[in-house]
Design a protein around this nucleic acid. Structure first.
Lengths: 349, 349
DNA sequence: GTGAAAGCGCTAACAC
DNA sequence: GTGTTAGCGCTTTCAC
C-alpha cells in the first residue's frame, strides 16, 4: 500500500473520476448518496488524509487563523480559549506562534503566516507604536490579510489593522471610583515593579498608569503610599507584615493591588495576622483572575474573555466579507468591577 | 499593482524565466550574482512574498514543526522555549495548537497537522494509554510523520512515537532521599488536591505518586501528615498557621510541598510567623520554578528545559534522517535537586 | 547560466 | 450526476 493516498488513487479504486471523489469528500449534494458512501468507505479503508496544501493552493484559502502572542501569559488564557471555541465552531483551525517578546521573531512569525497564506491574524503585539509594528501592519494591509490587534492600550490611529482596545487607565479609574463610592480617599498602591525583563517592564508601565489614574480621579497618591515588591505574586505577605508594625491610625483605609495574585495574598495575610478585611482595611485587586479566592476578592477584571470574543468575531466578519472596510476600526472592551467581600466603608479614624 | 506577486511576474519584470527567479530567490549558486541582485531588487520592490503552499506542495516538505499541547501551563513554558530556539535555529517554524484538555480537539488538531503536511510533531498528550492516543499514534506512524511525545510518566511500550520520559515517582523519591540524607524521617506532605477540573486531576495523580514514593523510600506517610489545600499556590499560609497552633514537638521535621509556589508561600509564611527555616523545620518544593524565591528554595526541579531540548533534538534528527528507526525510542529526563537554603538537619526533639 | 516543460494534489468551470 | 480540462505557484529535471 502506497504511503500517501490521493483522490486519484481513490478514484481508481472505486472506478470513478478524481473530481467526483473530490466532490464526494466535501459532501457536495450533486454526487449520489450511494456513490458517496462507496467513496467515503474507500477513503477510510485506504487511510486517506486530504492534502490541505493542494486544496488551499487551488481554492485560495487555508481555513487557518494565526494567532501571534508574546508569551504564554495568564493574560491571554481566557481570550485564547474564546478564540478557539468560536474560531473552530466557524470551521477554522487556530495556529499559535509565540515570539518570547522578541520583535525579530515576531516579524518572522507574521511573515510565516503570510507565506503560508493563512486567512486571518489575531495579534497581541510585543510593543506599541514602534517602527517594526507599523511596518508589519503595513505589510499585512498590503497583502490584504485581515488582522485584529488586541490588548492595545491606546488608540493607535496610524495602524490599518482592526483593534480591540483596552483602556488600562480607565479601568484603574473604575477601581478607584469603586473605592471612592465607599468613601475611601486614602488609598495605597501595592505593585510588583522590581521584576526583571519584560514582565517588569509591563508592571512598571502599569505603575505609571496608576499614577495618572489617581490624578484623573482627583486622588492624591503619596509616595509613602506606594509599596513596591519584587515579585508578582508573593509580595502581599510583606506588605501585611509591614503594616502590622505600623500604628493603625497611620494606615491607608484601602489598598489597590496591581495584580489579583498580590491582592489575594494580601487579604489572606491580613486574615492570618488578625486584621479584619474589609472592616479595618479594604482591598481591591486588578487583572484577569475571576477565580481568585473563590470569588471573594473584589477586583477590576480586565474582561479578557470578551477581548478574545470580540477579536475572533471581528476577524470572522472581515474574512467572510467582501467589504472589510465597513466595520469599525477599533472596539473598546470595558473592564468590570467584580464584587467580592474585601471592600467596604473605611474605618472611622 | 496586482495584489499577489508570483515569480512569473518578477520574471516578466526583469525579462527572465520563472525558474531562474526561483533559483535566485533560494540563493542557488548557478545563477549569476548580478542577475540575482536584479531579481532580488525587483522582488523587494514588488513586495513579493513566497507562497509556501505551492513551494511545499512541490517539494514535499513544509519546514514547519507542530506542537500539540493541552493548555498554556507553566509546565510547558521552558520546554517550549527550548523547542523554539533550537527549532528556529534549524530553519523550522514552530506552530502551536492547544486542545484545552479536550481529546476531540486534540485529535482534530493532530489531523490538521497531518493535512497541512507539517514535517514533525511534538506532542504532550492530555492523557496516557487511552484508545484515542493509541489511535492517533498509529495514524501518525502510518503517515510517517515523525512524532515525539513528551512528558510521559510511564513507559508506554505500545506506542510507535519517540518518547521523552519523565518518571515522576522517581523524581519524588529523589526529593525524599535528599531529605533523608539530612536525617529526616517524619516528613509531611503539602498538596493542592481540591482544585477543580483537569488541574485537580493532575494534582490528585501527583498525590498518588507521592504516596507510592514514600513507600518506595521506606518512609511512613501518616494520613495526619498529609495537608491538602484547595488552591495551587495559596495554601502555604494555611499550613503555617495550622502548625503554629500546634505544639512544636508534634511537628514533622520536614515538609515536602507538591508545588514550588506552595513551598514558596510556606517558607515566607513561616518566616513571617517567626518560625526559622530550616532550623526548626525544613521545606522542599517540587516542580518547574527555578526562579522561585531567588534560588533560595530547595526543590526537585523537573528539568523541563531539557525535556524540550531532547524533544526537538530527537525530532530534528528523525526529520533529517532516512532511517529514523535507528534512534532510541525513549529517552528519560532526570530531575535535579536544586539546592537552596530551606533544607537542613532536623531539630533535636 | 538560463529556459522549457512536467508535475505536486486539489478545485472549479464547464461538458456531457 | 459524472467526466474533462485547466489551472493554483512553485520546484525540479533536463535541454540548450
Amino acid at each position: 500500500m502506497p504511503r500517501k493516498i490521493t483522490i486519484h488513487q481513490i478514484a481508481k479504486e472505486v472506478g470513478l473520476n478524481a473530481s467526483t471523489v473530490s466532490l464526494a469528500l466535501r459532501g457536495d449534494p450533486k454526487v449520489r448518496e450511494k456513490t458517496r458512501d462507496r467513496i467515503l468507505e474507500a477513503a477510510k479503508r485506504m487511510n486517506y488524509e486530504p492534502n490541505n496544501l493542494a486544496r488551499s493552493l487551488s481554492n485560495g484559502r487555508t481555513r487557518i487563523i494565526g494567532v501571534m502572542l508574546s508569551d504564554m501569559s495568564r493574560f491571554y488564557e481566557e481570550s485564547l480559549e474564546a478564540v478557539f471555541t468560536l474560531g473552530e465552531a466557524a470551521g477554522f483551525t487556530i495556529s499559535v506562534r509565540f515570539c518570547s517578546w522578541d520583535q525579530a521573531r515576531e516579524k518572522a512569525g507574521l511573515h510565516s503566516f503570510v507565506s503560508n497564506r493563512i486567512d486571518g491574524i489575531i495579534w497581541g503585539p510585543t510593543d506599541y507604536n514602534t517602527a517594526e509594528i507599523a511596518e508589519m501592519d503595513a505589510l499585512l494591509h498590503k497583502f490584504e490579510v485581515p488582522t485584529v490587534m488586541y490588548g492595545l492600550p491606546d488608540d493607535t490611529q496610524s495602524l490599518h489593522c482592526y483593534q480591540i482596545g483596552l483602556d488600562m487607565q480607565k479601568s484603574i479609574q473604575v477601581g478607584l471610583a469603586h473605592l471612592k463610592s465607599y468613601g475611601h480617599t486614602d488609598i495605597a498602591l501595592l505593585a510588583a515593579t522590581e521584576v526583571q525583563g519584560m514582565f517588569g517592564r509591563m508592571y512598571r508601565r502599569r505603575m505609571a498608569m496608576f499614577r495618572d489614574a489617581f490624578i484623573a480621579e482627583g486622588l492624591h497618591l503619596d509616595d509613602r503610599r506606594i509599596f513596591e515588591v519584587g515579585d508578582d505574586n508573593c509580595g502581599g505577605l510583606d506588605l501585611a507584615l509591614k503594616l502590622s508594625q505600623m500604628e493603625r491610625s497611620q494606615w491607608p483605609t484601602a489598598i489597590f493591588a496591581a495584580d489579583d495574585l498580590l491582592a489575594r495574598e494580601l487579604v489572606k495575610s491580613f486574615k492570618t495576622l488578625g486584621v479584619r478585611v474589609p472592616e479595618e482595611i479594604s482591598v481591591i485587586g486588578y487583572d484577569v483572575f475571576p477565580w481568585a479566592m473563590g470569588g471573594q476578592l473584589c477586583s477590576v477584571n480586565l474582561n479578557t474573555k470578551e477581548i478574545g470574543e470580540k477579536a475572533i468575531q471581528m476577524l470572522l466578519k472581515c474574512i467572510n466579507s467582501e467589504h472589510p472596510q465597513q466595520f469599525d476600526q477599533r472596539v473598546e472592551v470595558l473592564p468590570q468591577i467584580r464584587l467580592g467581600t474585601t471592600c467596604g466603608r473605611p474605618r472611622s479614624r
